[in-house]
Design a protein around this nucleic acid. Structure first.
Length: 193
DNA sequence: ATCTCGATTGGCT
DNA sequence: GCCAATCGAGATG
């Protein structure tokens, strides 16, 4: 079952936590790939120094002001990073999807990633976009107005223990922990931390 | 566990 | 042209 747009309204840290255990599915280049979300990070708006919304508006970050459920993709150090806009309209915030546990289309993911180990297919923000065939042609599309990307609620959600930490790669972080991940899941990035 | 080097794009001078 | 940026892979110990 698909999530509703209301799922992405409200506090971005809450949405980030609720996304854990959900399924991110991509249809790209004729291949369907999907994975369980095991790691996310929340980014607020103008009060969050790490958020792109605290910078000047550009064609990349202006979609943070778009309606919740809009997709934001940008390049960092040679990797595409996948985010979903959250919060009320005109209140910029978003969630970065950082890691997936591969489910469908594992063969395709192996080919795209040129890796055989399942835990190396999508255990990081740049890895999962490559595995799912996500790039800047997904930027600014609406999740609910496109068949390229879906967020699904699994038939039966297994329970898990959630852990939090500081966001990764962020220089000026906030006091609160805004990274959320499934404890002891092997597909979480940098799970040695 | 720690480091180091390469990676691509957009935004600015 | 220059540079920063929500990273990844490989080498090393």
């Amino acid at each position: 079952m698909n999530v509703s747009r209301e799922f992405f309204e409200g506090d971005t840290a809450t949405v980030a936590q609720r996304l854990l255990g959900k399924i991110l599915l991509s249809r790209s280049e004729g291949c369907t790939t999907s994975g369980k979300i095991v790691e996310t990070e929340a980014y607020y708006g103008i009060d969050d120094p790490a958020s792109r919304a605290s910078q000047k508006k550009t064609k990349i970050n202006k979609v943070m002001w778009a309606k919740p459920g809009t997709i934001l993709v940008y390049m960092v150090h040679g990797n595409w990073l996948f985010n979903i806009v959250t919060g009320a309209k005109e209140v910029p915030s978003g969630v970065l999807i950082r890691a997936l546990e591969p489910l469908e289309g594992i063969k395709t993911m192996k080919d795209r990633r040129d890796r055989e180990k399942i835990s190396e297919l999508a255990s990081g923000p740049g890895k999962l976009t490559e595995a799912l065939g996500i790039s800047d042609n997904h930027h600014s599309i609406d999740l609910f107005d496109s068949d390229k990307i879906d967020i699904l609620i699994p038939e039966k959600e297994e329970d898990f223990e959630m852990k939090t930490s500081k966001r990764i790669g962020v220089k000026k972080d906030l006091e609160t922990d805004l990274r959320f991940y499934i404890y002891q899941n092997k597909h979480v990035s940098r799970h040695k931390l």
